[in-house]
C-alpha cells in the first residue's frame, strides 16, 4: 500500500550563528519536493547532528553555516559520522565558505557546497540526484 520511500533530509545548523533563514527556506523547498525534513534548529553540536542522523536514518545531511567556523566544525562532523558507521550518508553544506575552503572541504568528503546566490531548485535537484 505504501508508495515509494520518501527522501529523508536532516537540516541542521552547527555553530553559534543564528542566521537560520536559509536553512528554513531550504527546509520548505524540500518539503514541497515531497521530502521528509528533520529540522533541528540552530546551535547544534557536531555530536547532536551525528546522533540525530543516526537515529532518524536520514539519506542526506544538509548543514547551514555562516559563522566562519566551518573548517573546525565540518571536518569534526565528517569524522564523527565515520566513527558512528554512517560515513556513507552524503553531506552538503550551505553558507558563506571561501573558495579555498570549498576545495578543502570537498577533498575531505563534503558532496557539494552551495554559496550565496545558489538557487533553491538547484539544491533540491542535487539532493534528488544523490539519493
Amino acid at each position: 500500500m505504501k508508495k515509494g520511500k520518501n527522501i529523508r533530509v536532516l537540516i541542521a545548523k552547527p555553530g553559534l550563528d543564528g542566521h537560520d533563514r536559509g536553512a528554513k527556506v531550504l527546509a520548505r523547498a524540500c518539503r514541497d519536493a515531497g521530502m521528509e525534513v528533520i529540522y533541528t534548529g540552530i546551535r547544534q553540536s557536531p555530536e547532536q547532528i551525528v546522533e540525530t542522523a543516526l537515529q532518524e536514518d536520514v539519506d542526506v545531511i544538509g548543514l547551514s553555516i555562516l559563522s566562519g567556523a566551518h573548517m573546525s566544525i565540518i571536518p569534526r562532523i565528517l569524522e564523527l559520522l565515520n566513527e558512528s558507521g554512517i560515513g556513507d550518508i552524503p553531506v552538503i553544506v550551505g553558507g558563506i565558505i571561501p573558495p579555498d575552503d570549498v576545495e578543502e572541504l570537498k577533498r575531505r568528503g563534503v558532496k557539494a557546497i552551495f554559496g550565496p546566490g545558489s538557487s533553491v531548485n538547484e539544491i533540491v535537484e542535487f539532493i534528488k540526484s544523490i539519493t
Binding site: 527546509a27 519536493a33 525534513v37 529540522y39
Partner: peptide, 17 residues
Amino acid sequence: TGGAILGDRIRMQELAC
C-alpha cells in the same frame, strides 16, 4: 506531495546524545 517538516526534535535536542 507527501513531504513533511518534522520539527519536534528542536525541543528535544538536548537529549540527542
